[in-house]
Design a protein around this nucleic acid. Structure first.
Lengths: 221, 221
DNA sequence: ACCACTAAAATGTGATCACAAATTAGTGGT
DNA sequence: ACCACTAATTTGTGATCACATTTTAGTGGT
């Protein structure tokens, strides 16, 4: 098993917290396959701790719907269904538009420039077809914007939704690549620059619906 | 300690699940005071099990923000701040409008009648100033509507948001009563009856903002 | 009375153990 | 080869224990 987990650079207060973020990160990076079962003892061995902290971390991730419990109580990466995808899409539009609207008044030239740089990393990753880089940069682009309004509660809801689509997203990218992905960030950046709330909402909605819609079109295994 | 917890009528698959719902229910019914610490061993004794299931249930509720961890790792009922309240308000408007919109096409006469009956329970509870009854009926009214569209993911996000305001709501009701509460359900029912999406959204937004706004006006201790 | 300091009790975290249920491996029969 | 059946292993859950940290109670001094 090579480079499944990142070693934690930050210091965590508890083992459980460390495990939580390590597993969470692994999910976001597509290291788990949907449908594959995850074992407490297995993870504990890999992460060098007792089953105890793993249990709590998995319980936490399960309640965020990043993982799910099978009918036999086993923890696994959820498989996506068209219904779930539609719902996540709708929820993301609702919440991310709200977060962006909240952030908009706080965008100054410095922040806008930071966003432009992040967008360049996204497009550059797209050109090089670097999936890993694309996912990371795209995530940072969106969350850098949303974080401006300091929306703690809404942000954690949005994070939960991203966690839920991450495994599928990686699956699709690995099968079809990232070349077909549209880049709506330009529209978004322009809208932000002109402080046009309605345009920002439209751009975010398009970004989300085109991004996840293209997946919806493919078979969902 | 009298009638703090409901005895579980349904059968749960695990003790942890039973404890989770019991504590969750107690929070919704305002049995915990904001700021008061909750101890694992204390709950375990009250709920007649070992600390183990309690730990996992509390971890779960913490990740839903129904409870929070203090800097010394103790679990307590979160205290509300104006910032959090504003955020929850915005998130609820965004998500509940979405849920209602999704439910709207599925409302038939039977469902509408059920909603009317629930609304009567709400107004009746308001007249009798029965806080317990009002909270329960109001919750059922909203969630009966939202559940129609079968929005699993969005619904659990909304539930999380309601959980977060429950303790404060009870606190305010006990201090000021429920007489001043406006009843926007009539507008909502009318809008639903005429299948007017825009009116439904407006009614929900007003219901939420007036309900939580009146709290915001009071001091938040 | 009030406050700093200390000692005792209680608390959260993590490890280990026991056990029932589920999964996997193995076996024999057709 | 294929499938039903059984045995061995693995798994999740819950209980108990150990320990460092925090909280509370108690004490003495001003």
């Amino acid at each position: 098993m090579v480079q499944e987990f990142n070693s934690p650079q930050e210091e965590y207060r508890t083992t459980q917290e460390r495990v939580y973020f390590q597993v969470r990160d692994a999910i976001l990076r597509g290291k788990f396959l949907p449908g594959r079962a995850i074992t407490i003892r297995g993870l504990a061995a890999e992460l060098d701790c007792s089953p105890m902290p793993v249990r709590e971390a998995l319980r936490r991730l399960t309640s965020e719907r990043a993982l799910e419990l099978s009918d036999t109580r086993r923890v696994k990466v959820p498989t996506m269904t068209p219904e779930k995808l539609t719902e996540i899409c709708a929820a993301r539009v609702a919440l991310e538009c709200q977060a962006a609207e909240q952030a908009l008044p706080l965008v100054n030239e410095v922040e806008l420039e930071k966003l432009r740089q992040l967008d360049e990393r996204v497009t550059s990753a797209l050109e090089q077809k670097d999936i890993e880089q694309y996912v990371t940069a795209n995530l940072e682009f969106h969350f850098t914007l949303y974080r401006l309004g300091q929306p703690h509660i809404i942000l954690s809801l949005i994070e939960s939704l991203w966690l839920q689509t991450a495994p599928l997203q990686h699956l699709v990218f690995q099968r079809f690549g990232v070349q077909e992905l549209p880049d709506r960030h330009q529209d978004l950046l322009a809208a932000i620059g002109s402080k046009d709330v309605e345009q920002v909402r439209k751009a975010i909605q398009q970004d989300i619906e085109e991004g996840l819609g293209s997946i919806s079109a493919e078979e969902l295994l």
